[in-house]
Amino acid sequence: MATSEITLELVDRLVEKFPETVKNKYLDWHTLIVRREDIVELCEMLKSDGEFEFNFLTDLSGVDYLEYMEVVYHLYSYELQHKLCLKVRVKPDDLLVPSVTSLWSTADWHEREAYDLFGIVFEGHPNLKRILCAEDFPGHAFRKDFPLENDEEYLLRDEKTAEDYGISEDLPS
């Protein structure tokens, strides 16, 4: 059985339930741009509702578009064999996104990676700390404005970390 796209009726049902959502399509992936307030509720529905049954979060990536940052979720259902892409956009000065680790454990490291490389802070993540870069690494390496060569001014500037959002970044003892 080959993988199929999610049907348009199902997508429309989602848009009806969450009216702020923007519908889009890239190749064979139906894409929804979701408000960050809605993302956890929407994902809960996608996971538990028998019509969706998205039990597998394939990928979670961050993308920096300068005016905004994007968190991209690629979802998949083993049972119904359909797929869906979700996006959450946040402004660079307020990079708080609710975590989906409570729904899919696999989001754990993906979210840590997005935090490490883009500085997107996931609210409710059990262990939000850097994963690929060293703990004392200055800045977030995959942002578009990150300098390729040493730029002391950039490296010394103040940047919001998880702690500024009231989330403690526990270092291993």
């Binding site: 990536s61 993308v63 993906h110």
Partner: peptide
């Protein structure tokens, strides 16, 4: 503009 690799080893190691 952006290329993200979903590496199976990374996810499996989790």
């Amino acid at each position: 503009y952006r290329a993200k690799v979903r590496a199976p080893s990374f996810v499996n190691l989790m």
